[in-house]
Design a protein around this nucleic acid. Structure first.
Length: 741
DNA sequence: GTGCCTGCTCACGGG
DNA sequence: GAGCAGGCAC
């Protein structure tokens, strides 16, 4: 009995087909990761391929981490020399070694979208482009699309012939590129573009990597864009042992240039491609699968596919419509709480998926009140916080003095009396002399009109030079600590004493932890400053989902791709949210199709049970919006849905019950048929609670305290308690389970 | 040069 | 609702 016996016929065919181009069309949950990992094992163990010669590319860090883990499990010896990484980190690893051939320093900086925006602002100022007519983001997204298609600034200009706004963008593109290069920096798109350029201009480097990566595998192939396709085509051109796995129904990244044509071009670019379809689903119940199929079949532009499963029918899909987004969040949180308390599942068996990151806040609040451990994936990047960016700018300045953006960011942080006027004078001088900002600053005495600032500039430069010297023999952690004390950064925050400063200090501690974690994780390779900065730039969430801890996962539908959970909640199923307002109003019907594929991805994440919820009104950007239920919901056959306990009319008009029971009941199951808001029950504040304002109460976690206020908060009572040790907290009566003492 | 206030924009998604 | 740019007073 070998490990390959557990595979079905098609999966085995894919595993055993090792030579030549292979296209695997794998439906959701059809075990494609299993195929890829087994294929790697087969290559090494049965075909005697050196693990060193294998490259597996994924889209997200999360997917890469998961694949890495599974490969380690199955391969055992030698698995660490297989490259398992994202497109972007693959490129960075290559560029770090060879980008000097393209005229960059090998310790280039990577700009995130904030940096890009800052740079573009400078560009627009320089070219006198009015950012009211041409928004920085608009220009940047045009440039990004151009780079995805490998269009150079010069080509862009040629194409723009006669089109005024395109011409403007072309100008900005050119200058943006010039400044990036001057700063020795690359943006995310450049990582791919420059790698392709490197391969196209340096045949011997290309050949080295072709020989190295004799066996290449690409996951989520449907989401590759033109430059990514070019990259793998170049790498695989010599041996043609390229295996790509994709599902056109799960293509959800058209917005960043994903090109479905790549699946079609694949068979053109690589002759004699073997195509294998995986159609048996091992993940979900047939109910969930039927719903997914019913939704996706409304898309016109797709390849016919028939997913099937041997799994049972399972539970119906739960559907609820609520009055407000608060109610929705409470229902979901309460449902999870109940299932965990009943011992039916652990926290980590649950995932809450939503369309936009902004929706996470409500769930976060409710999870905290319900004392449910949770983890938000994605969202505001830790490394995008102000204090962290400041500290990173120090490290970048020390590592790469050409990064003007970084130097300018910290030249007056903490305050050292170097103002905007001085910075502008230096910028000008640097531009005139064609040197970097930092170089100009070092010879400040040559810059006219600086006056008294010169001494301040000199001491700043002396400090950076001192750090550079220290960096030679200190670890990154030690260097960072040195920076924190020498610059007075921590001192300044401590002096503020505000709560916000407190949070920032905690984040700095967290940052030090992350540095330490990086230094530990580099076992053989020496931890370097550049290495750390690179990891930070590429990894959104350094700590990926770890299996050890037990928590509910909150994330966007996009982040959820490739993952699976026994219990999945799709929240915010409303027209205007999902599908988003932009796609509903768009002229292009394919945008709605992309949105529908996203829905398909969401549904097929669920293994056992799926719940879909929506709210009649919710706050968006500070204003209340009234939404209809999502059109995708209506595409699910009604017989697959359950709307929970239907409360009869009489029951609604029953004499007042105990308010606590009522509150609990109303958030547990509020079917969408009820049009009468529960608030109208006519219960007065505090009635039915065993305690009132001024009473002493006990809370499971926070201990004893005094009730200061009770207000009616929609479904439930909101109770404010001044705890003796934990401070004042607001909580919902039904969750807090307060005991009168 | 610094700090505060106002008003504008932003939000669709990830590396 | 939040974060940021620009304007204005000190």
């Amino acid at each position: 009995m070998s490990i390959y016996d557990t595979l079905n016929a098609e999966q085995r065919e894919a595993v055993f087909h090792t030579e030549g181009p292979l296209l695997i069309l794998a439906g959701a949950g059809s075990g494609k990761t299993r195929v890829l990992t087994h294929r790697i094992a087969y290559l090494i163990e049965e075909k005697g391929i050196n693990p060193w010669n294998i490259l597996a590319i994924t889209f997200t860090n999360k997917a890469a981490g998961e694949m890495r883990e599974r490969v380690d499990d199955i391969v055992g010896f030698g698995s660490e020399s297989i490259w398992v990484s994202t497109f972007h980190s693959t490129c960075v690893r290559i560029l770090r070694r060879h980008i000097d051939r393209l005229g960059y320093d090998n310790n280039f900086t990577i700009y995130d979208s904030d940096d890009q925006k800052t740079l573009m602002k400078d560009v627009c100022k320089l070219l006198q482009i009015d950012t009211k007519t041409y928004r920085e983001r608009m220009i940047l997204s045009a440039i990004s699309s151009a780079k995805d298609e490998m269009v150079t600034p010069e080509e862009y200009e040629l194409n723009a012939y006669g089109d005024f706004s395109k011409k403007k963008i072309a100008e900005a593109y050119k200058e943006y590129e010039r400044q990036l290069k001057a700063n020795n920096a690359l943006d995310f798109d450049d990582l791919l573009v420059k790698t392709v350029q490197l391969f196209q201009t340096q045949p011997e480097i290309l050949e080295y990597y072709q020989d190295r990566f004799r066996y290449i595998m690409v996951d989520e192939y449907q989401d590759t864009n033109t430059v990514q396709f070019k990259l793998i085509s170049l790498l695989a051109a010599k041996y043609k042992n390229l295996c790509v796995v994709g599902d056109d129904d799960q293509s959800i990244y058209k917005f960043r240039g994903a090109n479905i044509q790549n699946i079609l071009s694949f068979e053109k670019e690589f002759e004699h491609t073997k195509v294998i379809k995986l159609e048996q689903n091992y993940r979900s119940t047939s109910t969930i699968l039927d719903a997914a199929n019913a939704v996706i079949k409304n898309n016109v532009g797709r390849k016919a596919k028939s997913l099937w499963t041997e799994n049972g029918e399972g539970e119906k899909i739960q559907f609820r419509q609520f009055d407000t987004a608060y109610d929705e969040a409470e229902y979901i949180v309460g449902d999870i709480r109940e299932r965990v308390d009943n011992g039916k599942a652990a926290y980590c068996d649950h995932a809450v998926l939503y369309r936009t990151n902004a929706q996470s806040r409500l769930f976060e609040e409710k999870m905290i009140t319900a004392n449910i451990p949770y983890k938000i994936v994605g969202g505001v990047n830790f490394y995008a916080r102000k204090e962290i960016k400041d500290l990173l700018a120090y490290l970048k300045t020390i590592d790469n003095g050409k990064d003007d953006l970084a130097v300018r960011r910290i030249i007056n942080v903490p305050k050292r009396g170097i103002g905007l006027t001085t910075v502008n004078r230096i910028t000008e001088a640097a531009q005139q002399r064609g040197i970097s900002f930092y170089e100009a600053l070092c010879s400040a005495d040559l810059v006219p009109g600086l006056g008294r600032s010169i001494s301040k500039l000199e001491s700043f430069a002396a400090m950076i030079e001192y750090f550079r010297k220290e960096a030679e023999h200190l670890s990154i952690t030690e260097l960072m600590k040195e920076i924190l004390t020498e610059t007075g950064y921590v001192e300044e925050l401590k002096a503020e004493g505000e709560e916000e400063a407190e949070v920032r200090l905690q984040n700095i501690d967290e940052f030090l932890n992350k540095i330490a974690a990086y230094e530990e994780s580099c076992e053989e390779e020496l931890p370097t400053l550049s290495g750390f900065l690179e990891e930070v730039a590429l990894v959104a969430d350094i700590d990926s989902l770890d299996e050890e801890s037990d928590y509910v996962v909150l994330m966007t539908l996009h982040s959820a791709k490739g993952l699976e959970f026994p219990y999945v909640y799709l929240a915010g199923m409303e027209d205007g949210i999902f599908p988003s307002y932009m796609t509903i109003t768009a002229d292009d019907p394919t945008e709605l199709e992309e949105e529908r594929r996203l829905c398909y991805v969401g549904i097929t994440r669920a293994k056992k049970e799926l719940s879909m919820t929506c709210a009649r009104r919710r706050m968006i950007r500070g204003e209340t919006q009234y939404n209809k239920m999502s059109r995708f919901l209506k595409e699910v056959p009604p017989q697959l849905l359950s709307t929970g306990k239907i409360v009869e009319k009489e029951e609604l008009e029953l004499p007042k019950q105990n308010a606590y029971v009522q509150a609990k009941q109303s958030f547990q199951a509020k079917p969408f048929m009820i049009s009468k808001p529960v608030q109208q029950f006519g219960v007065k504040s505090g009635e039915g609670l065993s305690y009132g304002v001024g009473d002493r109460v006990r809370h499971m976690k926070f201990g004893e305290g005094t009730v200061t206020a009770i207000t009616e908060g929609g479904r439930d009572y909101e109770v404010s308690v001044d705890f003796d040790s934990a401070g004042t907290k607001k909580m919902f009566a039904s969750f807090a389970k307060l005991q009168k003492v």
